[in-house]
Each structure stands twice: as structure tokens, then as C-alpha cells.
Design a binder for these strands. Structure first.
Lengths: 334, 334
DNA sequence: CTGAAAGCGCTTACAG
DNA sequence: CTGAAAGCGCTTACAG
């Protein structure tokens, strides 16, 4: 139905080899022939069949991207930047949102593998599960067939590459700031046991230790529910005393803001709050949220640039760390 | 390098035709043969080459999706739902974010066409430009080769299908509520001249007329900037008097909330605010935002279901309208 | 500079 | 139930 290379060949009075050459910019075509073919191609609105090309090249010029949920602000932003960069290289992508448990992540990655993507980008350290050998074995297996780029997670493997935010340091810096501004009872809220969450917790603890503040297990709370439930949960914990909160995501920080509002506490006076990711939310919410900017833009671009280098045959680093920085807004008084 | 159908054929001692049959579930294979082949396939981890299959079937079982920006809350949510539904049918998708001007939208749609997607989903009436013949001609052209499904925009064409939110009615309902609660000077904020924005404006005007309130051109303001600029812009317009605001997106409503805060106005007492889209934002923001829920979930599912029907060869309706409903929260007092 | 031919990995009538 | 062969629409040595 659609016009093929044979049609154009017939119409131009040359062989399909020649058509292929002009399509692919091969210089071994006379100007006269090239022009004629080009004009016929335009006239008949010819587009090479991408499936046939893929079969030849064994590539669709596509990368597979998986993240837990595209309606998450942070992921969406990341994907958005990656896409733009990919397009600059003439690449497209297939997105596969995996959901939040490890099994479905594995499922997503395996499906992407079957699609013969040129490379895989996994966004979030949760793709590593708890990081134990057993939970990451699927990645080693997949990496035998396609290079994997993990954003925010690292795994030792010849075909796995990582771009990592320095969450440990960022959280350490944030906690230190809080302490310097006089806060002593800092609540740490996290929403998963991912490697990245643990890094953040590590940074938090280090800052406390340095300041001689004992680490109180009660002040580290894992919260996986929605913002309103988080607020209510906090309201119920009347035993809890804190004058500041560090959270591993901006969303968690919003729950805290709602809690403060319900208790008529003043932010940042009674409670200081620092979120994480510096998402749009942090600017929209009132009061506007102080948040760690993990430099998503830089990470996303680095990933794509590295993929292209690798596909070109260049050597690339297996692990790149990107520093974040704290964006001060109205939920802190430093 | 990867194992092909030839390898499996050789290993199983049958022809490639038979392998193909068991892969595709063709019943014309003896149980004995099938089992042997299946076990060999598993042993060698065989996956049919998707490029070769695509070439045969002239389909990758993929739909192309374009929206202006995936980091927009509303779009991301829509894509997320569409994806889940597509996966249920065994389909994948390629996403192409177009940006906000008509030229780049046309560019995105044309690229998706070249990729030979089975169908195209365009999210947002902005793909229709101003709706004039001239601005939609590219769609008619593309629709000659691939069915197009427009979410929130309608276009008369044998191969274009629409699922539309009843924006006119939703906005009419919202305005009416505001009027019934005593508001007379209702500001209308919109961010584009899209068909959908115009529908919303129409609903707003109808409600005013019905209540005998003259339509004041000064109270209809187009705002395309960021929330903080929107706030400042509103602060500068000291001539403006209003006791309620209707906006065409939740983001615009957030600018209003920031304005109210800067002016120390009480929401909903001094100003009532109604947003549009019922995005996550509306729950996160303080005070929580009353917003129109355009039933994105229903729209997204309808689109996918209809695509599948069409691809199966069924007749489907060219235009489906989905009603929205108002979600009351804390920025209104009705 | 150009063309004939083989090949990419599959599917599917057709014949048996 | 099974296989040989043609074909899907391209690209690319190879020969001229």
C-alpha cells in the first residue's frame, strides 16, 4: 500500500541500490541521479520502512526507559529532559512504567530487553531492590544483552553504568544547616528502603554525630502512605518531639506542612522543613519549600551523552557522581 | 549473535516453519514437537526478533503518543493511565513531547507517522491550533495513513476520532456554583486560545448571562507566564476588582493563591478559587483547591479501548464526550 | 557511479 | 502435522 523503495526505483529508472544510497547519504551517486531520485521521493512522499531498516541495522535507534511512575513529578521531569536530549541525537524511546515493587520492575526490564532497545535507562535505585545479590541478579542477566544505565543506583557490572546523585552529601549538608540554625530534634522521614534512601539517612546521621547529637531511632520514620494519611499519622504521634524535618521526597515534606497547619505550628519557626528533589511542588506549595536539588537536568543529560558515546564505541566511565545543592525557600530560617 | 529461529530449528530437528508455528500458537503442531521446541526455546532463551516480526506484520504493536510536555501534571497522569491500558492489550507506545507551539506539534506528529505506529494519540486541543482549516490540514494529511485519536479536541475526518471533556458544561457548572454562593465579580484566567479554553470561556459566559451579570472583558485575562509572575501581574492590576476566580488549569489557580497570600486576602472568604484538572497539585496546595475533575481516567481508557476496537476492524464512534465534575475543597465556600 | 544478488529474521500460503 | 520456498522492505559487499 505504502510506496516502497521498489516503486521509487521504477519511477526513477534506477535500481533500488541507488535509491538506498541516496536515502542514506552515500556519496557514490551522481548529482544528476541524486536530484532526480530526491524529487521523485518527495513527489511520492516516500519514507523508508523503519521495520526493514531496523531488521538490517539490528537497531531501531531507540532506548528503553523504565521508571516506577511517570505521574511522579521527579520521574516525569527526568524523562522530559532525557527525551529532549535523545531527540538531539535522533533517538526515540519506549517508556515502561514499572510500578513500585521489585517483581514488576524486573518484568518491565525484561520486556524492554525483548524489544531490542539499543540501551536501557532505569530511573531510581529501587531497581536494585535492597541491593543484595539475589535481588539484582536479573540486572546482570539483562546486561549481558544490552547496556544498562541506572540513574541513582550503582551496580558492579561490565555493562552497567551509573549516574548517581550524591545523596549522602546533600542530606548531610541539609542536616548540618538545620543544626547550625539551632535545630536539635530533627525528624527524618523516608518512603522506601532503597539504596538512595539509605544514603540520605547516612548523611543525616553523620551530621548529627558530628554535632554530638545522639541518634534517636524514634525520629526516623518510614512513611509510605498519601499526604493526608501522613499528616494524620504525625498528628497521632503525640509522643514525638521535633523542631525540624528532613524528608527524602518533596511529597513527604508536603505532608509535614499539612501537619503543621493542622497543629497551627509556624513554619519555619516552630518547625523547619527541608524536602528533596526540588520539584515543581516545592515552588507551588505555601509556604514554598526549601529542597535539595539533585541536579536532575545534569544527570539526565549525562546519561544520554554517555549512551551515545558507548553506542559509538567509546569507553565511558562506569560511575559518575553528580552533586546536588540546597535551594532555600520559606520553610527554613537559615 | 543472538539466537535466531534457525538455531532453534536446527537444535530441535525441525524446520523454521514449525518453530514459527509454536511461537505463534498455531495449533497445527503435534504436542510432542511443541514440547520439544518449547523446551529448547527456553533452554536457549530464545526471543523472536521483533524487527523481523514488525516487517512481516507491518506493525510493531505500538501507538504513538504526543503531548506538549510530560512534566505537566495533567499530561503525565493521562499518559500513565493510557500506558497501563495499552499494556493490558499487549501494546507499547512511543512518546513524543512536542512543546507548545503548533509547528513543533506538527513536527512531532509527522515523526510519529514515519515510525509507522499503529495509531496516534494526541493529548490536548492545542494540536488543532486555532481550529482553522489551515492549521489542521497536517492532521488530515497524516490521518490518511494512520488513525488519529485526539483527546480533548474534535476534527471532522474519516480517520480521526475524539474523546472530549465537556469543558463547556463543567465550567458553566462551576461558574453557576460560584454565582449561587453570592459571587458577582468572577475573574476568568486562561492560558491559551485553544478550542478547549474557548469552550471553558463559553461556559463561564453562559453562566454569567443566565444570572444577568454583564460580561466584563477586563475580567477575562490570558496568562501564559509562571506562577510567580502571574501573582505579580495580578498584584499590579490594582484596577481589577473580583471576588472569585475561575481558571483553566490548576497551575493558574496556584498563582491566584499566591496572590491572595501576598495581599493577605482570605480564601475562600475574600476570594473563591476554582481550578481545572483536579491534578495532584490541588490536594497538595494549601488551602486545598476546589477543582474540576475532567475524568481523565475515563477518557484515557476510552481512547485505548477504541483504538483496539478500530484495529480489530470494528466500527467506532467518531466523537465521545465525557462529563466532568466539580471536586469541592477549601478554596470555595459552597 | 551503478546494478544484481545475498542476506537481515521472520511468516505464510502451498504441497504433501 | 510438517517442510521448501517466496516474500516483507531494506542494506551492502562485490563486480563492473
Amino acid at each position: 500500500m505504502a510506496v516502497t523503495i521498489y516503486d521509487i526505483a521504477r519511477l526513477s529508472g534506477v535500481s533500488i541500490a541507488t535509491i538506498s544510497r541516496v536515502v542514506n547519504g552515500n556519496p557514490n551517486v551522481s548529482d544528476k541521479t541524486r536530484e532526480r531520485v530526491l524529487s521523485i521521493m518527495k513527489e511520492y512522499d516516500y519514507t523508508p520502512n523503519p521495520f526493514a531498516r531496523s531488521l538490517q541495522f539490528n537497531s531501531m535507534k531507540m532506548v528503553g526507559i523504565s521508571c516506577s511512575d511517570i505521574s511522579d513529578d521527579y520521574m516525569a521531569n527526568m524523562v522530559s529532559i532525557i527525551e529532549k536530549r535523545l531527540h538531539e541525537y535522533g533517538y526515540d524511546y519506549m517508556l515502561f512504567c514499572s510500578g513500585y515493587d521489585l517483581n514488576s520492575r524486573e518484568h518491565a526490564v525484561n520486556l524492554l530487553l525483548k524489544k531490542k532497545m539499543d540501551a536501557l535507562i532505569l530511573i531510581g535505585s529501587q531497581f536494585l531492590g535492597n541491593g543484595q545479590e539475589e535481588e539484582v541478579s536479573y540486572l546482570h542477566k539483562v546486561a549481558k544483552n544490552v547496556p544498562i544505565f541506572i540513574i541513582n543506583g550503582a551496580l558492579e557490572d561490565p555493562n552497567i553504568y551509573s549516574v548517581i546523585a550524591d545523596d549522602y552529601k546533600s542530606m548531610y549538608d541539609a542536616a548540618k544547616k538545620l543544626i547550625e540554625s539551632g535545630r536539635r530534634k530533627i525528624l527524618f522521614l523516608y518512603d522506601s528502603d532503597s539504596v538512595s534512601s539509605m544514603q540520605k539517612m547516612g548523611g543525616y546521621e553523620k551530621a548529627l554525630k558530628e554535632a554530638g547529637i545522639p541518634i534517636d531511632g524514634n525520629l526516623k520514620i518510614k512513611i509510605t502512605c498519601k499526604v493526608h494519611e501522613e499528616r494524620d499519622l504525625l498528628l497521632l504521634r503525640k509522643d514525638l518531639e521535633f523542631d525540624a524535618v528532613l524528608t527524602t521526597t518533596d511529597k513527604l515534606a508536603i505532608g509535614v506542612i499539612k501537619y503543621a497547619k493542622a497543629k497551627k505550628l509556624d513554619i519555619p519557626k516552630d518547625i523547619s522543613v527541608v524536602g528533596y528533589n526540588n520539584s515543581y511542588l516545592s515552588e507551588y506549595i505555601e509556604p514554598e519549600l526549601t529542597s535539595v536539588d539533585p541536579s536532575a537536568k545534569k544527570m539526565a543529560k549525562t546519561v544520554v551523552d554517555n549512551i551515545m558515546k558507548l553506542l559509538k564505541g567509546d569507553e565511558i566511565e562506569h560511575r559518575i557522581t553528580v552533586e546536588g545543592n540546597l535551594i532555600k525557600r520559606c520553610t527554613t530560617d537559615f
